[in-house]
Design a protein around this nucleic acid. Sequence first.
DNA 1: ACAAAAGTGTTACCTCTACACCCATGA
DNA 2: TCATGGGTGTAGAGGTAACACTTTTGT
Lengths: 245, 245
Amino acid sequence: MNTDKHSQNLKKEDYLSHIAFDSVIFGFNGKDLKILVLQYHNTGLFALPGGFVRRNESLDEAVSKGVVERTGIDNIYLEQFQTFGGLDRFDSKAMERILKMNGLDPKANEWLLDRFISIAYYALINFEEVNPVPDALADSIEWYSFEELPPLMMDHEEIVQKALETLRANLDRKLLGMNLLPEKFTMRELQNVYEKIMGEPFKRTAFQRKMLATNALIRHEKRFTGGAHRAPYLYSFKTMVKDRS
Amino acid sequence: MNTDKHSQNLKKEDYLSHIAFDSVIFGFNGKDLKILVLQYHNTGLFALPGGFVRRNESLDEAVSKGVVERTGIDNIYLEQFQTFGGLDRFDSKAMERILKMNGLDPKANEWLLDRFISIAYYALINFEEVNPVPDALADSIEWYSFEELPPLMMDHEEIVQKALETLRANLDRKLLGMNLLPEKFTMRELQNVYEKIMGEPFKRTAFQRKMLATNALIRHEKRFTGGAHRAPYLYSFKTMVKDRS
DNA sequence: ACAAAAGTGTTACCTCTACACCCATGA
DNA sequence: TCATGGGTGTAGAGGTAACACTTTTGT
Protein backbone atom coordinates (compact mmCIF):
# COMPACT_ATOMS: atom_id res chain seq x y z
CA MET A 1 0.00 0.00 0.00
CA ASN A 2 1.28 3.36 -0.92
CA THR A 3 0.28 6.77 -2.09
CA ASP A 4 0.15 9.04 -5.02
CA LYS A 5 3.08 11.19 -5.95
CA HIS A 6 1.45 14.32 -4.66
CA SER A 7 0.71 13.30 -1.15
CA GLN A 8 -0.87 16.59 -0.34
CA ASN A 9 -3.57 15.56 -2.73
CA LEU A 10 -4.55 12.46 -0.79
CA LYS A 11 -7.94 13.86 -0.06
CA LYS A 12 -10.50 11.37 1.03
CA GLU A 13 -13.11 12.62 -1.37
CA ASP A 14 -10.94 12.05 -4.42
CA TYR A 15 -10.52 8.33 -3.78
CA LEU A 16 -12.53 5.19 -3.26
CA SER A 17 -12.18 4.39 0.41
CA HIS A 18 -11.11 0.92 1.57
CA ILE A 19 -9.65 0.08 -1.83
CA ALA A 20 -5.95 -0.17 -2.58
CA PHE A 21 -3.80 -1.93 -5.11
CA ASP A 22 -0.35 -3.46 -4.87
CA SER A 23 1.98 -4.34 -7.67
CA VAL A 24 4.68 -6.96 -7.94
CA ILE A 25 6.95 -5.61 -10.64
CA PHE A 26 9.23 -8.26 -12.11
CA GLY A 27 12.40 -7.48 -13.97
CA PHE A 28 15.19 -9.61 -15.35
CA ASN A 29 18.68 -8.20 -15.48
CA GLY A 30 20.14 -10.97 -17.61
CA LYS A 31 21.01 -13.08 -14.59
CA ASP A 32 18.41 -12.79 -11.85
CA LEU A 33 14.71 -12.32 -11.53
CA LYS A 34 14.04 -9.30 -9.34
CA ILE A 35 11.14 -7.28 -8.01
CA LEU A 36 10.81 -3.64 -7.05
CA VAL A 37 10.46 -2.93 -3.33
CA LEU A 38 10.18 0.48 -1.75
CA GLN A 39 11.16 1.72 1.67
CA TYR A 40 9.29 4.41 3.55
CA HIS A 41 11.09 7.47 4.89
CA ASN A 42 12.67 6.95 8.29
CA THR A 43 10.64 3.94 9.22
CA GLY A 44 12.58 0.93 8.02
CA LEU A 45 9.34 -0.35 6.55
CA PHE A 46 9.46 -2.14 3.22
CA ALA A 47 6.46 -2.55 0.97
CA LEU A 48 5.31 -3.27 -2.52
CA PRO A 49 4.59 -0.27 -4.72
CA GLY A 50 0.88 0.39 -4.57
CA GLY A 51 -1.69 3.10 -4.46
CA PHE A 52 -5.32 4.03 -4.36
CA VAL A 53 -8.06 4.37 -6.93
CA ARG A 54 -9.44 7.78 -7.80
CA ARG A 55 -13.17 8.11 -8.14
CA ASN A 56 -12.88 9.08 -11.78
CA GLU A 57 -10.54 6.39 -13.01
CA SER A 58 -11.00 2.67 -13.46
CA LEU A 59 -9.09 0.17 -11.38
CA ASP A 60 -6.91 -0.84 -14.31
CA GLU A 61 -6.12 2.77 -15.11
CA ALA A 62 -5.12 3.48 -11.53
CA VAL A 63 -2.74 0.53 -11.42
CA SER A 64 -1.30 1.27 -14.81
CA LYS A 65 -0.66 4.87 -13.84
CA GLY A 66 0.97 3.79 -10.59
CA VAL A 67 3.32 1.37 -12.29
CA VAL A 68 4.22 3.80 -15.05
CA GLU A 69 5.08 6.45 -12.48
CA ARG A 70 7.41 4.14 -10.61
CA THR A 71 9.17 2.68 -13.61
CA GLY A 72 9.20 5.52 -16.08
CA ILE A 73 8.03 3.31 -18.92
CA ASP A 74 4.60 2.75 -20.27
CA ASN A 75 3.32 -0.13 -22.36
CA ILE A 76 3.85 -2.55 -19.53
CA TYR A 77 2.52 -6.06 -19.27
CA LEU A 78 0.14 -5.95 -16.32
CA GLU A 79 -2.05 -8.70 -14.98
CA GLN A 80 -4.41 -8.75 -12.08
CA PHE A 81 -4.04 -11.98 -10.16
CA GLN A 82 -5.75 -11.82 -6.80
CA THR A 83 -7.59 -9.63 -4.37
CA PHE A 84 -6.60 -9.76 -0.75
CA GLY A 85 -9.33 -9.04 1.76
CA GLY A 86 -8.25 -10.54 5.07
CA LEU A 87 -9.14 -8.92 8.35
CA ASP A 88 -5.49 -8.83 9.29
CA ARG A 89 -4.42 -6.79 6.34
CA PHE A 90 -4.22 -3.36 7.85
CA ASP A 91 -1.75 -2.03 10.30
CA SER A 92 -2.92 1.39 11.34
CA LYS A 93 0.06 1.93 13.60
CA ALA A 94 2.51 1.43 10.77
CA MET A 95 0.47 3.66 8.49
CA GLU A 96 0.33 6.33 11.18
CA ARG A 97 4.08 6.19 11.50
CA ILE A 98 4.53 6.51 7.76
CA LEU A 99 2.28 9.55 7.66
CA LYS A 100 3.99 11.20 10.61
CA MET A 101 7.46 10.62 9.24
CA ASN A 102 6.33 12.36 6.09
CA GLY A 103 5.00 15.34 7.98
CA LEU A 104 1.36 14.45 7.41
CA ASP A 105 -1.30 14.64 10.05
CA PRO A 106 -2.80 11.20 10.73
CA LYS A 107 -5.97 12.83 12.03
CA ALA A 108 -6.48 14.67 8.75
CA ASN A 109 -5.88 11.50 6.80
CA GLU A 110 -7.82 9.14 8.98
CA TRP A 111 -9.27 7.21 6.07
CA LEU A 112 -5.79 5.90 5.34
CA LEU A 113 -5.67 4.19 8.71
CA ASP A 114 -8.81 2.23 8.06
CA ARG A 115 -9.16 -1.28 6.72
CA PHE A 116 -8.23 -1.81 3.06
CA ILE A 117 -8.85 -4.49 0.52
CA SER A 118 -6.07 -4.73 -2.01
CA ILE A 119 -6.22 -5.84 -5.59
CA ALA A 120 -2.85 -7.25 -6.56
CA TYR A 121 -1.25 -7.08 -10.01
CA TYR A 122 2.00 -8.28 -11.36
CA ALA A 123 3.97 -6.48 -14.02
CA LEU A 124 6.67 -7.72 -16.37
CA ILE A 125 9.12 -5.20 -17.65
CA ASN A 126 12.30 -4.94 -19.58
CA PHE A 127 14.90 -4.28 -16.93
CA GLU A 128 17.12 -2.19 -19.15
CA GLU A 129 14.55 0.48 -19.82
CA VAL A 130 13.63 1.14 -16.22
CA ASN A 131 14.63 3.97 -14.00
CA PRO A 132 12.76 3.36 -10.76
CA VAL A 133 11.24 6.46 -9.15
CA PRO A 134 10.21 6.51 -5.49
CA ASP A 135 6.97 8.27 -4.61
CA ALA A 136 6.61 11.05 -2.11
CA LEU A 137 6.24 8.85 0.95
CA ALA A 138 9.11 6.55 0.12
CA ASP A 139 12.75 7.40 0.00
CA SER A 140 13.93 4.46 -2.00
CA ILE A 141 12.68 1.99 -4.54
CA GLU A 142 15.05 -0.78 -5.46
CA TRP A 143 15.42 -4.10 -7.17
CA TYR A 144 15.63 -7.13 -4.91
CA SER A 145 16.07 -10.71 -5.95
CA PHE A 146 14.04 -13.31 -4.14
CA GLU A 147 16.90 -14.59 -2.06
CA GLU A 148 17.52 -11.21 -0.49
CA LEU A 149 14.05 -9.75 -0.03
CA PRO A 150 13.76 -7.62 3.09
CA PRO A 151 10.84 -8.40 5.42
CA LEU A 152 7.77 -6.77 3.93
CA MET A 153 4.83 -5.03 5.58
CA MET A 154 1.57 -6.74 6.35
CA ASP A 155 0.70 -9.50 3.92
CA HIS A 156 3.01 -8.30 1.17
CA GLU A 157 5.20 -11.39 1.33
CA GLU A 158 2.16 -13.52 0.72
CA ILE A 159 1.30 -11.32 -2.24
CA VAL A 160 4.77 -11.78 -3.71
CA GLN A 161 4.53 -15.52 -3.22
CA LYS A 162 1.19 -15.66 -4.96
CA ALA A 163 2.45 -13.47 -7.81
CA LEU A 164 5.31 -15.85 -8.44
CA GLU A 165 2.96 -18.83 -8.39
CA THR A 166 0.67 -17.17 -10.90
CA LEU A 167 3.56 -16.21 -13.12
CA ARG A 168 4.79 -19.81 -13.10
CA ALA A 169 1.36 -21.18 -13.88
CA ASN A 170 0.95 -18.77 -16.78
CA LEU A 171 4.41 -19.08 -18.23
CA ASP A 172 3.59 -21.86 -20.65
CA ARG A 173 0.08 -20.80 -21.44
CA LYS A 174 1.06 -17.27 -22.34
CA LEU A 175 4.17 -15.89 -23.94
CA LEU A 176 5.33 -14.04 -20.90
CA GLY A 177 9.03 -14.33 -21.47
CA MET A 178 8.91 -11.62 -24.06
CA ASN A 179 8.01 -8.95 -21.58
CA LEU A 180 11.15 -9.46 -19.54
CA LEU A 181 13.63 -9.33 -22.40
CA PRO A 182 14.84 -6.72 -24.83
CA GLU A 183 13.35 -6.92 -28.27
CA LYS A 184 16.05 -9.20 -29.63
CA PHE A 185 17.59 -11.93 -27.56
CA THR A 186 19.34 -15.26 -27.87
CA MET A 187 17.84 -18.63 -27.10
CA ARG A 188 20.15 -18.89 -24.11
CA GLU A 189 18.81 -15.65 -22.68
CA LEU A 190 15.25 -16.81 -23.13
CA GLN A 191 16.12 -20.04 -21.39
CA ASN A 192 17.67 -18.12 -18.52
CA VAL A 193 14.42 -16.24 -17.97
CA TYR A 194 12.45 -19.44 -17.94
CA GLU A 195 14.85 -21.13 -15.57
CA LYS A 196 14.84 -18.24 -13.12
CA ILE A 197 11.07 -18.06 -13.11
CA MET A 198 10.54 -21.77 -12.72
CA GLY A 199 13.47 -22.21 -10.39
CA GLU A 200 14.79 -25.27 -12.22
CA PRO A 201 17.17 -25.97 -15.09
CA PHE A 202 16.00 -27.07 -18.51
CA LYS A 203 17.80 -29.18 -21.09
CA ARG A 204 19.26 -26.92 -23.72
CA THR A 205 18.23 -28.86 -26.79
CA ALA A 206 14.76 -29.70 -25.57
CA PHE A 207 14.15 -26.08 -24.65
CA GLN A 208 15.26 -24.87 -28.03
CA ARG A 209 12.98 -27.24 -29.85
CA LYS A 210 10.03 -26.52 -27.61
CA MET A 211 10.36 -22.82 -28.19
CA LEU A 212 10.79 -23.15 -31.93
CA ALA A 213 7.80 -25.49 -32.02
CA THR A 214 5.54 -22.76 -30.60
CA ASN A 215 6.11 -20.99 -33.89
CA ALA A 216 6.15 -17.70 -32.03
CA LEU A 217 9.76 -16.72 -32.68
CA ILE A 218 11.36 -14.95 -35.58
CA ARG A 219 14.99 -15.70 -36.26
CA HIS A 220 17.20 -12.76 -37.07
CA GLU A 221 20.89 -12.24 -37.78
CA LYS A 222 23.52 -13.78 -35.57
CA ARG A 223 25.06 -12.01 -32.63
CA PHE A 224 28.85 -11.95 -32.65
CA THR A 225 29.77 -11.58 -29.05
CA GLY A 226 33.46 -11.97 -29.34
CA GLY A 227 33.26 -15.31 -27.61
CA ALA A 228 35.30 -18.13 -29.05
CA HIS A 229 32.34 -20.16 -30.26
CA ARG A 230 29.60 -20.29 -32.80
CA ALA A 231 27.56 -17.09 -32.83
CA PRO A 232 23.97 -17.59 -31.67
CA TYR A 233 21.00 -16.35 -33.63
CA LEU A 234 18.98 -13.49 -32.29
CA TYR A 235 15.26 -14.01 -31.96
CA SER A 236 12.25 -11.82 -31.39
CA PHE A 237 8.66 -12.67 -30.68
CA LYS A 238 6.43 -12.71 -33.71
CA THR A 239 3.49 -10.73 -32.45
CA MET A 240 2.69 -8.44 -29.63
CA VAL A 241 0.03 -10.94 -28.65
CA LYS A 242 0.61 -11.41 -24.99
CA ASP A 243 -2.32 -13.63 -24.20
CA ARG A 244 -3.17 -16.77 -26.11
CA SER A 245 -5.77 -18.07 -23.67
CA MET B 1 -24.71 -6.70 -6.56
CA ASN B 2 -27.16 -7.40 -3.88
CA THR B 3 -27.87 -7.10 -0.21
CA ASP B 4 -28.00 -8.90 3.04
CA LYS B 5 -31.08 -10.79 4.10
CA HIS B 6 -32.04 -8.15 6.59
CA SER B 7 -32.12 -5.15 4.37
CA GLN B 8 -33.06 -2.86 7.19
CA ASN B 9 -29.57 -3.58 8.49
CA LEU B 10 -27.79 -2.18 5.46
CA LYS B 11 -26.28 0.56 7.49
CA LYS B 12 -23.35 2.32 5.91
CA GLU B 13 -21.21 2.10 9.00
CA ASP B 14 -21.41 -1.69 9.13
CA TYR B 15 -19.91 -2.20 5.69
CA LEU B 16 -16.85 -1.35 3.65
CA SER B 17 -18.01 1.24 1.19
CA HIS B 18 -17.34 0.85 -2.54
CA ILE B 19 -16.75 -2.89 -2.18
CA ALA B 20 -19.11 -5.59 -3.37
CA PHE B 21 -18.85 -9.18 -4.40
CA ASP B 22 -20.68 -11.20 -7.02
CA SER B 23 -20.94 -14.95 -7.27
CA VAL B 24 -21.43 -17.22 -10.25
CA ILE B 25 -22.92 -20.35 -8.74
CA PHE B 26 -22.65 -23.35 -11.03
CA GLY B 27 -24.81 -26.43 -10.70
CA PHE B 28 -25.26 -29.52 -12.82
CA ASN B 29 -28.64 -31.22 -12.92
CA GLY B 30 -27.44 -34.34 -14.68
CA LYS B 31 -28.01 -32.83 -18.11
CA ASP B 32 -27.19 -29.13 -18.18
CA LEU B 33 -24.78 -26.75 -16.58
CA LYS B 34 -26.72 -23.96 -14.94
CA ILE B 35 -26.12 -20.87 -12.84
CA LEU B 36 -28.20 -19.11 -10.23
CA VAL B 37 -29.68 -15.76 -11.26
CA LEU B 38 -31.90 -13.59 -9.15
CA GLN B 39 -34.55 -11.10 -10.10
CA TYR B 40 -35.30 -7.96 -8.10
CA HIS B 41 -38.82 -7.20 -6.92
CA ASN B 42 -40.97 -5.45 -9.50
CA THR B 43 -38.11 -4.24 -11.62
CA GLY B 44 -37.51 -6.94 -14.19
CA LEU B 45 -33.80 -6.61 -13.37
CA PHE B 46 -31.72 -9.75 -13.31
CA ALA B 47 -28.41 -10.02 -11.50
CA LEU B 48 -25.89 -12.38 -10.02
CA PRO B 49 -26.21 -13.10 -6.32
CA GLY B 50 -23.84 -10.82 -4.49
CA GLY B 51 -23.43 -8.73 -1.43
CA PHE B 52 -21.25 -6.45 0.62
CA VAL B 53 -18.44 -6.95 3.07
CA ARG B 54 -18.96 -6.15 6.73
CA ARG B 55 -16.23 -4.30 8.53
CA ASN B 56 -15.65 -7.20 10.89
CA GLU B 57 -15.47 -10.06 8.42
CA SER B 58 -12.92 -10.98 5.81
CA LEU B 59 -13.74 -10.90 2.13
CA ASP B 60 -13.77 -14.68 1.89
CA GLU B 61 -16.06 -14.96 4.88
CA ALA B 62 -18.50 -12.48 3.41
CA VAL B 63 -18.70 -14.34 0.12
CA SER B 64 -18.98 -17.70 1.77
CA LYS B 65 -21.79 -16.49 3.99
CA GLY B 66 -23.59 -14.98 1.00
CA VAL B 67 -23.43 -18.17 -1.01
CA VAL B 68 -24.44 -20.37 1.89
CA GLU B 69 -27.47 -18.18 2.54
CA ARG B 70 -28.63 -18.44 -1.06
CA THR B 71 -28.07 -22.15 -1.49
CA GLY B 72 -28.78 -23.54 1.92
CA ILE B 73 -25.66 -25.68 1.92
CA ASP B 74 -22.26 -25.04 3.34
CA ASN B 75 -18.98 -26.66 2.43
CA ILE B 76 -19.08 -25.19 -1.01
CA TYR B 77 -16.23 -25.01 -3.48
CA LEU B 78 -15.54 -21.30 -3.88
CA GLU B 79 -12.87 -19.62 -5.90
CA GLN B 80 -12.11 -15.97 -6.43
CA PHE B 81 -11.32 -15.34 -10.06
CA GLN B 82 -11.33 -11.65 -10.88
CA THR B 83 -12.03 -8.19 -9.57
CA PHE B 84 -14.02 -5.84 -11.73
CA GLY B 85 -13.27 -2.17 -11.33
CA GLY B 86 -14.47 -0.41 -14.44
CA LEU B 87 -15.87 3.09 -14.35
CA ASP B 88 -19.02 1.86 -16.05
CA ARG B 89 -19.87 -0.66 -13.42
CA PHE B 90 -22.44 1.21 -11.44
CA ASP B 91 -25.92 2.11 -12.40
CA SER B 92 -27.32 4.34 -9.70
CA LYS B 93 -30.68 4.64 -11.39
CA ALA B 94 -31.20 0.89 -11.38
CA MET B 95 -30.07 0.65 -7.78
CA GLU B 96 -32.40 3.47 -6.82
CA ARG B 97 -35.27 1.66 -8.45
CA ILE B 98 -34.43 -1.53 -6.64
CA LEU B 99 -34.36 0.27 -3.31
CA LYS B 100 -37.64 2.08 -3.97
CA MET B 101 -39.42 -1.05 -5.07
CA ASN B 102 -38.39 -2.60 -1.81
CA GLY B 103 -39.72 0.30 0.20
CA LEU B 104 -36.30 1.62 1.10
CA ASP B 105 -35.36 5.26 0.99
CA PRO B 106 -32.58 5.90 -1.55
CA LYS B 107 -31.57 9.01 0.33
CA ALA B 108 -31.02 7.06 3.53
CA ASN B 109 -28.99 4.47 1.64
CA GLU B 110 -27.04 6.77 -0.55
CA TRP B 111 -23.81 4.83 -0.23
CA LEU B 112 -25.45 2.03 -2.23
CA LEU B 113 -25.83 4.32 -5.22
CA ASP B 114 -22.14 5.10 -5.34
CA ARG B 115 -19.46 3.44 -7.43
CA PHE B 116 -18.54 -0.12 -6.49
CA ILE B 117 -15.69 -2.42 -7.24
CA SER B 118 -16.73 -6.04 -7.26
CA ILE B 119 -14.69 -9.11 -6.45
CA ALA B 120 -16.11 -12.05 -8.37
CA TYR B 121 -16.16 -15.66 -7.21
CA TYR B 122 -17.45 -18.81 -8.75
CA ALA B 123 -18.98 -21.65 -6.78
CA LEU B 124 -19.50 -25.29 -7.69
CA ILE B 125 -22.28 -27.11 -5.95
CA ASN B 126 -24.15 -30.35 -6.02
CA PHE B 127 -27.41 -29.48 -7.67
CA GLU B 128 -29.44 -32.04 -5.77
CA GLU B 129 -28.71 -30.58 -2.36
CA VAL B 130 -29.66 -27.03 -3.14
CA ASN B 131 -32.76 -25.16 -2.26
CA PRO B 132 -32.18 -21.64 -3.57
CA VAL B 133 -33.31 -18.84 -1.28
CA PRO B 134 -33.88 -15.30 -2.56
CA ASP B 135 -32.75 -12.46 -0.37
CA ALA B 136 -34.91 -9.62 0.84
CA LEU B 137 -34.50 -7.42 -2.23
CA ALA B 138 -35.08 -10.17 -4.75
CA ASP B 139 -38.25 -12.05 -5.34
CA SER B 140 -36.81 -14.97 -7.20
CA ILE B 141 -33.61 -16.87 -7.55
CA GLU B 142 -33.55 -19.52 -10.21
CA TRP B 143 -31.38 -21.81 -12.25
CA TYR B 144 -30.70 -20.78 -15.81
CA SER B 145 -28.69 -22.65 -18.37
CA PHE B 146 -26.39 -20.63 -20.57
CA GLU B 147 -28.59 -20.80 -23.62
CA GLU B 148 -31.46 -19.11 -21.85
CA LEU B 149 -29.82 -16.55 -19.62
CA PRO B 150 -31.88 -13.40 -19.22
CA PRO B 151 -30.11 -10.09 -19.88
CA LEU B 152 -28.14 -9.27 -16.76
CA MET B 153 -27.48 -5.95 -15.04
CA MET B 154 -24.36 -3.91 -15.59
CA ASP B 155 -21.32 -6.01 -16.36
CA HIS B 156 -22.72 -9.24 -14.97
CA GLU B 157 -22.74 -10.97 -18.32
CA GLU B 158 -19.05 -10.27 -18.64
CA ILE B 159 -18.55 -11.72 -15.17
CA VAL B 160 -20.38 -14.91 -16.13
CA GLN B 161 -18.32 -15.18 -19.28
CA LYS B 162 -15.09 -14.82 -17.37
CA ALA B 163 -16.23 -17.32 -14.74
CA LEU B 164 -16.84 -19.91 -17.41
CA GLU B 165 -13.46 -19.24 -18.97
CA THR B 166 -11.74 -19.67 -15.64
CA LEU B 167 -13.65 -22.83 -14.88
CA ARG B 168 -12.61 -24.25 -18.23
CA ALA B 169 -8.99 -23.34 -17.72
CA ASN B 170 -8.97 -24.93 -14.29
CA LEU B 171 -10.89 -28.06 -15.13
CA ASP B 172 -7.88 -30.20 -15.92
CA ARG B 173 -5.54 -28.71 -13.42
CA LYS B 174 -7.89 -29.20 -10.52
CA LEU B 175 -10.45 -31.87 -9.83
CA LEU B 176 -13.41 -29.62 -10.18
CA GLY B 177 -15.85 -32.16 -11.53
CA MET B 178 -16.31 -33.61 -8.09
CA ASN B 179 -17.99 -30.53 -6.75
CA LEU B 180 -20.79 -30.67 -9.27
CA LEU B 181 -21.75 -34.30 -8.77
CA PRO B 182 -23.26 -36.35 -5.97
CA GLU B 183 -20.79 -38.40 -3.99
CA LYS B 184 -21.12 -41.45 -6.22
CA PHE B 185 -21.54 -41.18 -9.95
CA THR B 186 -20.94 -43.12 -13.13
CA MET B 187 -18.23 -42.44 -15.66
CA ARG B 188 -20.88 -41.29 -18.11
CA GLU B 189 -22.13 -38.68 -15.64
CA LEU B 190 -18.63 -37.41 -15.07
CA GLN B 191 -18.12 -37.18 -18.80
CA ASN B 192 -21.38 -35.24 -19.14
CA VAL B 193 -20.12 -32.66 -16.67
CA TYR B 194 -16.87 -32.27 -18.55
CA GLU B 195 -18.60 -32.00 -21.89
CA LYS B 196 -21.04 -29.37 -20.68
CA ILE B 197 -18.31 -27.29 -19.15
CA MET B 198 -16.00 -27.49 -22.13
CA GLY B 199 -18.80 -27.27 -24.64
CA GLU B 200 -17.47 -30.12 -26.76
CA PRO B 201 -17.89 -33.89 -26.87
CA PHE B 202 -15.19 -36.30 -25.76
CA LYS B 203 -14.50 -39.82 -26.94
CA ARG B 204 -15.94 -42.23 -24.44
CA THR B 205 -13.02 -44.63 -24.22
CA ALA B 206 -10.35 -41.97 -24.16
CA PHE B 207 -12.19 -40.09 -21.44
CA GLN B 208 -12.51 -43.20 -19.31
CA ARG B 209 -8.84 -43.97 -19.54
CA LYS B 210 -7.77 -40.41 -18.91
CA MET B 211 -9.86 -40.23 -15.78
CA LEU B 212 -8.70 -43.60 -14.48
CA ALA B 213 -5.13 -42.58 -15.20
CA THR B 214 -5.40 -39.63 -12.82
CA ASN B 215 -5.65 -42.22 -10.10
CA ALA B 216 -8.13 -40.01 -8.30
CA LEU B 217 -11.17 -42.24 -8.55
CA ILE B 218 -12.35 -45.09 -6.40
CA ARG B 219 -14.47 -47.74 -8.04
CA HIS B 220 -17.49 -48.95 -6.11
CA GLU B 221 -20.35 -51.38 -6.74
CA LYS B 222 -22.27 -51.27 -9.97
CA ARG B 223 -25.43 -49.34 -10.48
CA PHE B 224 -28.33 -51.33 -11.87
CA THR B 225 -30.49 -48.81 -13.58
CA GLY B 226 -32.97 -51.14 -15.17
CA GLY B 227 -31.57 -50.33 -18.58
CA ALA B 228 -31.05 -53.20 -20.94
CA HIS B 229 -27.28 -53.04 -20.89
CA ARG B 230 -24.28 -53.70 -18.78
CA ALA B 231 -24.47 -51.92 -15.43
CA PRO B 232 -21.86 -49.16 -14.99
CA TYR B 233 -19.60 -48.93 -11.98
CA LEU B 234 -20.10 -46.13 -9.54
CA TYR B 235 -17.10 -43.99 -8.74
CA SER B 236 -16.19 -41.44 -6.13
CA PHE B 237 -13.25 -39.13 -5.80
CA LYS B 238 -10.48 -40.42 -3.60
CA THR B 239 -9.79 -37.40 -1.51
CA MET B 240 -11.42 -34.15 -0.67
CA VAL B 241 -8.38 -32.47 -2.15
CA LYS B 242 -9.83 -29.88 -4.44
CA ASP B 243 -6.66 -28.18 -5.53
CA ARG B 244 -3.64 -30.00 -6.85
CA SER B 245 -1.80 -26.93 -8.08
C1' DA C 1 -31.05 -64.14 -28.86
C1' DC C 2 -30.69 -59.25 -29.22
C1' DA C 3 -29.91 -54.39 -28.46
C1' DA C 4 -27.63 -51.13 -25.81
C1' DA C 5 -24.14 -49.32 -23.10
C1' DA C 6 -19.77 -50.25 -20.33
C1' DG C 7 -15.19 -51.72 -20.01
C1' DT C 8 -10.69 -53.27 -22.04
C1' DG C 9 -6.99 -54.89 -25.55
C1' DT C 10 -4.41 -53.73 -29.54
C1' DT C 11 -2.14 -51.27 -32.87
C1' DA C 12 -0.62 -47.27 -35.21
C1' DC C 13 0.89 -42.91 -34.63
C1' DC C 14 2.75 -38.98 -32.55
C1' DT C 15 5.61 -36.62 -29.26
C1' DC C 16 9.21 -36.02 -26.26
C1' DT C 17 13.95 -37.19 -24.57
C1' DA C 18 18.57 -38.23 -24.67
C1' DC C 19 22.53 -38.33 -26.90
C1' DA C 20 25.44 -37.63 -30.38
C1' DC C 21 27.15 -35.15 -33.92
C1' DC C 22 28.28 -31.23 -36.62
C1' DC C 23 28.91 -26.13 -37.05
C1' DA C 24 30.80 -21.61 -36.33
C1' DT C 25 33.76 -18.59 -33.97
C1' DG C 26 37.90 -16.28 -31.79
C1' DA C 27 42.08 -17.16 -29.51
C1' DT D 1 43.65 -26.27 -34.53
C1' DC D 2 41.55 -26.18 -30.27
C1' DA D 3 38.09 -25.05 -26.94
C1' DT D 4 33.58 -23.40 -26.44
C1' DG D 5 28.94 -22.90 -26.96
C1' DG D 6 24.99 -23.18 -30.65
C1' DG D 7 22.02 -25.85 -33.76
C1' DT D 8 20.11 -30.21 -35.56
C1' DG D 9 19.57 -35.49 -36.71
C1' DT D 10 18.15 -39.71 -34.93
C1' DA D 11 16.75 -43.66 -32.37
C1' DG D 12 14.23 -45.31 -28.46
C1' DA D 13 10.81 -44.68 -24.94
C1' DG D 14 6.50 -43.30 -23.62
C1' DG D 15 2.04 -41.60 -24.21
C1' DT D 16 -2.36 -40.87 -27.02
C1' DA D 17 -6.10 -42.00 -30.15
C1' DA D 18 -8.88 -44.87 -32.85
C1' DC D 19 -11.18 -48.98 -33.37
C1' DA D 20 -12.63 -53.31 -32.49
C1' DC D 21 -13.77 -56.61 -29.35
C1' DT D 22 -15.74 -58.51 -25.14
C1' DT D 23 -18.87 -58.15 -21.20
C1' DT D 24 -23.12 -57.42 -18.92
C1' DT D 25 -27.74 -56.22 -18.49
C1' DG D 26 -33.11 -56.28 -19.36
C1' DT D 27 -36.42 -57.29 -22.78
